[in-house]
Design a protein around this nucleic acid. Structure first.
Lengths: 232, 232
DNA sequence: CGCATTCGTTGCGCCAGGACAAAGACCCTC
DNA sequence: GAGGGTCTTTGTCCTGGCGCAACGAATGCG
């Protein structure tokens, strides 16, 4: 197996207080794994015995409700940790992370975390901040779902994707992984049909350019207006 | 000012790894404060220079959106910490905690937190778990808002209140603080009117008993069925 | 290259629940 | 105990967006 790219891990805020030696020790106990498109890293409900870090690629974390509906809880971007259920006193994983692009993850047995935090209080503080960040994102989403109409929610979701996974390309900004209308629907709490309609309308206005599993944003500012204002 | 009830603080999971001496030191730097009904502990947007612990009473944490709509982000129950924005690298408070009952809080300057965590790694781990708990609650709520209809969401919200603030009373379980239909609406992302209608219907079925700023649940199991199933 | 599968688009009807409105019910204050 | 403020209930209307359905387009596979 290829070596893990240390400089990439080094740069993560989560590990910014670790010495090189400590980081090496941490990496020594890590395992690397490739995850192909559409493949799941682990399954919802499975016993949580590892925690993960995404090196390359994208994952979407889904939850399935009792009555079979699916939602996307969040996207995982390179450098994000995920599957830290055990650190939050859960025994099983609450969701399923699935690759939306060819991905590479590294993982540790959960015990390693406990041992490591003992010796590195900073790590716990950083982890808390990371999780805190997630909490704030979650609250933002709750606020949006409670107060905004579908079109604005979709606009916000797309803008977020642009920020986190935007890749400048000739005529605009490409979302850098395969994303279907269904995915966007599951991120915004609506239906595939409605998303399709909204995107079609946006395409007519020249805001975006669609495509199968693709999305190219041409007018970020225009979307911003839709997301914020009452404008039309 | 009256003394802080040590046994109450002692019992909190957050502090369960601290020695009595450490706890005393922590309490020594704390300030106590009474908060009357409807009074805010701090305001959204204010500089985050303290963090808090609720000893007695109830707080509702609200956020106001740019266009003036309000939502209730969460309820704070005795023993919960709140206002820990600074620990999550925010400089201001993202919401406003307002007393829904006569309350007593204690607070520390944010610097104390940093100092204390240095010396007590366990505290950071516990704090992480506490915040992780919040994150999971937030995800649950996102899932509900995305997939469930209003009546089910209200049922879930009420059941949660029963769990966290239920007080057995002759004919059922009382929600132990002042709560208006408006509040429930802001917790579930709907309108006061819809909540009123739903509660009226439930009252007709004998599930609950209403009243001004009051709510008494008579049939928890019945609500559970509404919350879970497709039942009618 | 043809077939199957998955993904996207679009039209139409319908209804949950929001907007608006107005009238009680309760509480507090003076 | 009268009056004003807040909270609640209930009615009516209206619409955003969901469900259903059918078709079209792109991709992958044998």
């Amino acid at each position: 197996m290829a070596d893990i790219d240390r400089s990439l891990v080094r740069a993560l805020p989560l590990f910014n207080k670790l010495s090189d030696a400590e980081l090496d020790r941490l990496l020594a106990s890590a395992t690397m794994r490739r995850v192909g498109m559409g493949e799941a890293v682990f399954e919802q409900g499975q016993k949580a015995d590892r925690f993960f870090l995404l090196l390359h690629g994208r994952l979407k974390v889904t939850q399935v409700t009792a009555d079979g509906q699916q939602i996307i809880v969040r996207m995982v971007h390179p450098g994000d940790i995920f599957g830290f259920a055990k650190a939050l006193q859960r025994d099983d994983y609450p969701g399923t992370p699935t690759a939306s692009a060819e991905s590479v993850v590294i993982c540790w047995p959960t015990e390693v975390w406990g041992l490591f935090v003992e010796q590195n209080p900073h790590l716990a503080v950083n982890a808390m901040q990371t999780i805190g960040q997630r909490l704030q994102e979650a609250h933002t989403r709750i606020r949006e779902m409670a107060t905004e109409e579908v079109e604005r929610r979709v606009a916000h979701a797309v803008l977020r994707l642009v920020e986190q996974a935007g890749k400048t390309e000739g005529t605009g900004i490409r979302i850098d992984f395969q994303i279907s209308r269904q995915d966007i629907a599951e991120m915004t709490g609506t239906t595939l049909h409605t998303v399709s309609r909204i995107l079609s309308a946006w395409e007519a206005k020249g805001l975006v350019e669609g495509g199968r599993q693709k999305l190219l944003v041409r007018d970020t500012a225009g979307l911003q207006i839709l997301a914020e204002g009452q404008a039309d």
